[in-house]
């Protein structure tokens, strides 16, 4: 089995997929680091102070102003209210939620890329794992070895998991190193609040407690890894079902993008919460953002994703072991 996984890893590495993905991440991180730097600078210029309390106070005032303006949609108003309460909580407890530093940047990058950017990178790896063997004809050589079909598919699946883990590791490492050059490398022990939960319009702070940023990061990266695995598994299934890598990518892309769009407009369509693509923003539950549909919780979203992933895995194995190869 180790040999089979080794084979699959060689193929992924020699196709230069991992290298390209690492390069894309590096470029994006550099881009966002620069954007973040500009933002910090412009806020400082506006307020004429480097005191974060003044900055946070200003943000709270901004949010309140926006809440008072008319023509605000119901969802947006709810979101802002919760946001306001959160900011107030941070200010009252004397905690700076956006203290500069590489770990803070890592956290924000992970939170913002969990529903689209990371799934996209995962898709690049997983989309052609099986379909490229089918379209290239090498599947015939692979399946005429004295190795059972499920073992071959399992080796590919394990290779996918390893690659996904590598992508996340390089995402962590690159975002830490590149942003650290600009913002400094400290901030691992910064206290952060977690345990917010949203009940209707109210932000429930009963379970809110402080944890240091490195624990918070570990938690978030765990969730990002989980999301990546589910997206990877779904792509893997499509890759088994279809010969064309382009078709696999097209379908996954459509699903992911529709998810990003749907989450902003489905609050009244309740059964949409069973779709996997509106459940991808798991890190929002940790930082206490309002979910797209009332009643969604971390446990619920993880269950939905796990069910989708498991179903995809079962379908992949059944189809791959039973199918006639032409």
């Amino acid at each position: 089995m180790i040999n089979l996984v080794y084979n699959e890893m060689i193929k992924i590495v020699r196709k230069k997929r991992l290298l390209i993905i690492a390069a894309i991440i590096a470029v994006l991180v550099a881009l966002f680091t620069y954007a973040q730097l500009k933002r910090v600078q412009s806020i400082q210029e506006q307020l004429g102070t480097t005191d974060w309390r003044a900055q946070l106070q200003q943000q709270i005032i901004d949010t309140q102003n926006r809440l008072n303006s008319s023509g605000l949609s119901e969802e947006w108003r709810k979101f802002l209210q919760i946001r306001l309460q959160q900011q107030q909580y941070y200010l009252d407890h004397d905690i700076n939620p956006s203290a500069p530093g590489a770990p803070t940047f890592m956290r924000m990058f992970a939170e913002n890329s969990i529903d689209l950017f990371i799934p996209l990178m995962v898709m690049v790896i997983a989309a052609d794992l099986v379909s490229s063997e089918a379209s290239g004809g090498t599947i015939k050589l692979l399946l005429t070895r004295p190795v059972k079909r499920w073992k071959i598919l399992l080796s590919k699946y394990i290779a996918m998991i390893l690659s996904v883990s590598f992508i996340l590791l390089s995402l962590g490492a690159l975002s830490y190193l590149i942003s650290g050059v600009v913002f400094g490398f400290s901030g691992w022990t910064l206290p952060l609040l977690t345990g917010f939960s949203v009940h209707g319009e109210e932000l429930d702070t009963a379970n809110v407690h402080l944890i240091s940023q490195w624990k918070y990061l570990l938690m978030e990266f765990g969730l990002v890894w989980f999301v990546s695995l589910v997206v990877g598994t779904l792509t893997f299934m499509l890759s088994v079902l279809m010969r064309s890598t382009a078709a696999v990518m097209g379908i996954m892309l459509a699903a992911l993008i529709s998810g990003a769009i749907l989450s902003t407009m489905v609050s009244s369509w309740e059964s949409a919460k069973y779709l996997f693509m509106v459940n991808l923003r798991l890190t929002d539950y940790v930082s206490g953002m309002a979910p797209p549909i009332n009643g969604m919780t971390l446990g619920f979203s993880m269950t939905v994703l796990a069910v989708w992933g498991l179903a995809a895995l079962i379908i992949s194995f059944i189809v791959f072991t039973k199918r006639d190869v032409y």
């Binding site: 080794y6 060689i10 290239g136 090498t138 050589l141 070895r145 004295p146 190795v147």
Partner: peptide, 19 residues
């Protein structure tokens, strides 16, 4: 149909590892 992005030798190694 062999893997075009591997050398001939690597292709053979790939299949040897499977047996």
């Amino acid at each position: 149909e062999l893997y075009p992005y591997l050398t001939g030798w690597e292709n053979l190694e790939h299949f040897v590892r499977m047996v």
